[in-house]
């Protein structure tokens, strides 16, 4: 169970893994996530599903080395098994024909954006995707995204690929050029915060898919709670997608750092033990 059948390095710290999980592959929709526990000692971490193959019974995850558990996950090889994979969790993305949709993905957030881009395109939308990364090597899945996008705009911080600038520059250019009916954004919290600020200025409805700290991922612990429109919500059962204009991103950023010290100490210990 949960055997890794394929592994690909997108960059030194970002890995794509394809896992045998037939039940999840069959049940999952765009927007769903899984909780993964890499081994008996591992943490439970939420990862949004990038794609699945119901015939082969596999799901694809894109993982970035962040803490000890995600690093251990990235270090697994084809043939290895992950101790626990549970899902699909969260509410699926609401898909309908909106008109023109701008999908903005940053870093590993591009991976969970892929199924949404695909579903929106298949529902008849004009899909313009903006992919953003620090540098060329970190722009992932461009080809797959392009397959379901009417247009792909690539933005890099250092200008090593596509246009130089932030994701918001790319989005604003499109907004100034044509009518946009919806924006979907997935990426680092700080990026989604600025995307939300921008689209709010232009009054464009915006959905953000959030990836917070979770333990069980089933509503039990409340570690993932955020404030949306003044109300506390649980990302795991009420989300992971929310109206980006109503999310308190500043609070979310603080909460994401709740265990930073412990995580750094653990990472140091992990490196020293190797």
């Amino acid at each position: 169970m949960n055997r890794i059948v394929e592994k690909e390095y997108f960059s030194a710290n970002v890995v794509k893994i394809v896992i045998e999980a037939p039940l999840i592959a069959k049940a999952r929709r765009a927007g769903h996530f899984v909780i993964v526990r890499v081994d008996e000692k591992g943490e439970r971490i939420p990862l949004t599903i990038a794609t699945s193959d119901t015939e082969k019974g596999t799901i694809t995850l894109v993982v970035q080395k962040m803490g000890v558990s995600s690093t251990k996950l990235c270090n697994l090889n084809v043939g290895d098994s992950i101790t626990d994979v549970v899902g699909p969790l969260g509410k699926a993305t609401h898909i309908e024909k909106f008109g023109t949709v701008v999908c903005a993905g940053g870093g590993v957030g591009i991976a969970p954006l892929l199924p949404i881009v695909e579903a929106l395109k298949k529902a008849g939308n004009r899909v313009i995707t903006v992919l953003a990364a620090r540098t060329k090597d970190l722009v992932i899945l461009e080809k797959q995204i392009a397959e379901y996008s009417d247009e792909v705009v690539v933005m890099t911080d250092d200008g090593s690929y596509g246009k130089k600038g932030l994701v918001t520059h790319g989005i604003e250019e499109i907004i100034n050029r044509e009518k946009v009916d919806l924006c979907v954004t997935i990426g680092p919290a700080i990026m989604m915060k600025f995307v939300a600020l921008l689209t709010k200025k232009y009054d464009i409805p915006t959905v953000a898919s959030l990836n917070t700290i979770m333990v069980d991922g089933t509503g039990m612990c409340g570690a993932c709670r955020i404030t949306v429109d003044g109300q506390t919500k649980f990302v795991c059962v009420d989300g992971p997608e929310f109206d980006a204009h109503k999310v308190d991103f500043d609070e979310m950023l603080i909460r994401l750092g709740a265990y930073r010290e412990e995580e750094m100490l653990a990472m140091e210990k992990f490196k020293n033990n190797k």
């Binding site: 039940l23 999840i24 049940a27 626990d84 994979v85 549970v86 899902g87 699909p88 969790l89 089933t218």
Partner: peptide, 8 residues
């Protein structure tokens, strides 16, 4: 690791 209503 199996949620009735989600996994099956």
């Amino acid at each position: 690791n199996c949620i009735v209503g989600k996994t099956i």
